[in-house]
Simulated assay, not measured.
Amino acid sequence: MTSRSTSGLRLPDPVVAAIRAELPGAAERCIAAVMREVPQYSEPFRGRMGRNIENAVTLALGGFLDMATTDAGIEPGSMVESVFEAAYALGRGEARSGRTMDALAAAYRVGGRAAWHDLSASAVENGLPAAEVAKFAEFVFDYIDQLSAASVSGHADELATSGRVRERHRERLAHSILTGVDRASLTVLAERADWAPPATLTAVIAPSSASAVLRSQQEARTLHAGSDAPGLDDHPDLTVLLIPDLGDRARTALVAQLADRQAVVGPTRPWDQARTSYRRALRAIILDVARPGASADSEDHLVPLVLTADRAALADLRERVLAPMQGLRPTTIEKLTETLRAWVLHQGRRDEIATVLFVHPQSIRYRVGRLRELYGDRLTDPQFILEAAVALGLSEG
């Protein structure tokens, strides 16, 4: 009788022959045990896939027997190498299917235990000395650990690769939303990015240094447009997030969190119309209305956003409102302009005007009298009052 050895294990030829004959049945029982004890595989292993997995297990057990009967170990091009490549591919496939590595590790444990039960029984029945059984057990479970490690590596690599691909698709989706791509095209991009559209999105412009923390605190579907979002060319230190279904309480908390930063939270809009949320937040950034320490909520800055929507028109309106002062000295124009502004905003209440401007009431009476000389009945004309409020409402004088 001849025997072969590896790592101190000696398997007599009759034992090898008996185990090899046992492999198909052992593979079948391994599959049955996994289906019974690991719920995640109770359905996937049925039918055609089950037969394919059974063949793979038979191959894996055959690879084990080859390792146990040669001194060469894993050689390039050998069946054993093919087995480990298959284990790596299995890990990647499980990641693509959405199953965790925990499920696959459980399958390895259950399958290894079932295989050991069959193989050890066959080995003992065919004369494997008791002294060698412990070495045989060590070899079996070491082999299972190596296969499991190969699958873990494949699973991790697939997650890393698919994660990078998915992130690129989601960044492209975010850019497409911000540039106003039509809903049908956005839906296709969302499917490609494995992204289930929420009801709404809220655009947030914040420092790039804070983006990772903000994303970790928000819903998993939060999109990141990066710092190269359209319109942010002059603000390379800022980035854009699109947050799904941001409720009132979460919005309040987010605004408070961003109050000490150069950041703006746009209005909430239907997910495929989130471009309007971003455009408002972007205008708030450009106008510098949300400085550190001020509110980061664009809803708190609607007046300046509205009044500066058309800067040229605002300038023309201001020029028309102040036209009667043309020809006066600059210092006089400055004083009368601040008085007119206060007159409009405080509805002509002279004491309030004096308090706001820190000017003696007698001086206010003089200035108001001067305004009446310049504007006449227009000071009581509702249309002029509206125009003056809009034209001077943002100025300090």
Rank of each mutant, 00 (worst) to 15 (best):
G50I: 06
A315S: 15
A105L: 12
P129E: 07
I353V: 05
G93P: 06
A72P: 07
I31S: 02
D228Y: 08
E334S: 13
Q326K: 13
L223G: 04
P76G: 02
I333W: 07
A105N: 03
F384T: 08
K335A: 15
T100H: 00
E299A: 15
R164V: 06
I144T: 11
A342H: 05
P304L: 07
A86M: 03
E319C: 10
L201I: 06
P230Y: 00
G127K: 06
D248C: 12
L119H: 02
V255T: 09
E75A: 15
L258A: 12
V152G: 07
M67S: 11
L61A: 12
E334Y: 00
V368D: 11
A290Y: 02
D351G: 13
R365A: 13
R92M: 04
R329A: 14
V368K: 03
A114S: 11
L254R: 09
A253C: 13
P197L: 07
R378P: 01
F64C: 01
M1I: 11
L386I: 11
S5K: 03
D71E: 15
S7Y: 13
A60N: 06
L317K: 09
L61S: 03
A220D: 14
R29N: 06
M101I: 01
M325S: 01
F45M: 09
G369M: 09
G266E: 12
M49I: 03
A296T: 06
G327I: 08
M1N: 14
D260T: 01
H155R: 01
T308H: 14
R291I: 04
A72L: 12
S227A: 14
E219F: 12
H117L: 12
Q347S: 10
A354K: 07
R168S: 11
A323Q: 13
R349M: 13
